[in-house]
């Protein structure tokens, strides 16, 4: 998608060996963008497949925590909005799988790798949505962090990924606002509603900060990714950007962020925040988060239970094709 380059399958099979790093660096310097059938180093291709697939899986798994609240949304308006948002997440997953396929992989294989646990999705979706306010916190904080990460990806060196991200970012801004609005409504409601909003923010703040990944001095792949123009800013730079953006918004909400060390640093013109407990992040990545097993079980079940729909579509397409043939 986004410009699959339409060579014959034969051409793909005869794909010439990857060019040396120097030729590729020259292409990046001259053109700034890499398109599907350009020669690219195997490591660049592999790194992109891993990142785009993980991103796609995250969009798909990310439907679950919010889907959990569709049937219990507090009003018809909220329910319609939440359904539209969850549908967007499915769309984002599909844009991204299509972008990954331009690198010569099959969506079906990527989905298999997710189901067998060989590929990951964002750890943030392994936290439960215990209350309605969590839907607000996810929109405001989780989608806010995601947008901070994703906006620079719109200028990523790989064309199909960058184009997918332009579309995703346009749609995400509604997601963040709807989350903010949910929390704003709750925090200006009864004291119980405000407490519920505060509790959700308390639980989602630190996991949201961890969405930016490990600190720069502990992020082995970042330097290569930046040299290739896939990543434009470091984990810590993006995390700081998110904190600076979010603190004033929390004040507008009348909610506090659960960090006693959070303060404005006049000299640096940034907010300082407390130390992040990354051992928790690594535990969740390893599979020991609160919902890892549940998310994967649900995903595998949904895929298996949808098999009859795929089979019916196949059967219908085959029947229509036969009819067209017999008429012709």
């Amino acid at each position: 998608m986004y410009g699959n380059d339409f060579g014959s399958d034969q051409a793909a099979d005869q794909h010439v060996p990857a060019p040396d790093e120097q030729a590729f660096a020259a292409l990046l310097a001259d053109e700034g963008r890499v398109e599907p059938r350009d020669d690219m180093p195997g490591a660049y291709r592999k790194s992109l497949v891993r990142q785009i697939a993980q991103h796609a899986h995250s969009e798909i798994i990310g439907m679950q925590p919010e889907g959990n609240w569709i049937s219990r949304a507090p009003s018809l308006r909220r329910k319609a909005i939440l359904m539209a948002k969850v549908q967007d997440e499915a769309g984002h997953g599909l844009y991204l799988y299509a972008a990954a396929e331009t690198l010569g992989v099959d969506r079906a294989d990527l989905v298999d790798q997710l189901h067998s646990g060989r590929q990951k999705y964002s750890s943030i979706f392994n936290y439960p949505t215990l209350t309605w306010a969590d839907v607000g916190a996810i929109g405001w904080l989780v989608d806010g962090a995601a947008i901070t990460n994703q906006v620079p990806l719109c200028r990523c060196s790989y064309g199909p990924y960058a184009r997918a991200m332009v579309r995703v970012c346009k749609e995400e801004s509604f997601h963040q606002r709807q989350g903010f609005e949910i929390l704003h409504t709750l925090s200006h409601g009864t004291s119980e509603q405000k407490a519920m909003a505060q509790d959700a923010v308390n639980r989602y703040w630190w996991p949201s900060l961890m969405m930016f990944g490990p600190p720069d001095d502990d992020s082995p792949n970042s330097a290569q990714s930046m040299a290739w123009g896939i990543k434009r800013f470091s984990n810590d730079e993006l995390r700081q950007r998110f904190v600076d953006m979010t603190v004033p918004q929390s004040e507008a909400l009348g909610l506090t962020l659960p960090d006693p060390d959070l303060r404005w640093n006049e000299e640096r013109a940034h907010y300082e925040y407390g130390a992040i407990d990354f051992t928790e992040l690594f535990e969740v990545i390893k599979g020991n988060g609160p919902c890892n097993a549940e998310r994967m079980a649900h995903k595998r079940r949904a895929h298996a239970e949808g098999a009859w729909v795929r089979e019916a579509a196949d059967a219908y397409a085959a029947k229509q094709a036969r009819r067209t043939e017999s008429v012709a």
């Binding site: 769309g91 599909l94 299509a98 969506r107 579509a313 397409a317």
Partner: peptide
């Protein structure tokens, strides 16, 4: 203008999926 791509068993499903995927707004 090219918007993107998708998988579908036939042209009719491809059109319907394209509507849902690329023209939600």
């Amino acid at each position: 203008v090219h918007s993107g791509s998708l998988h579908a068993p036939d042209a009719e499903m491809a059109l319907r999926n394209a509507r849902d995927l690329y023209t939600r707004r």
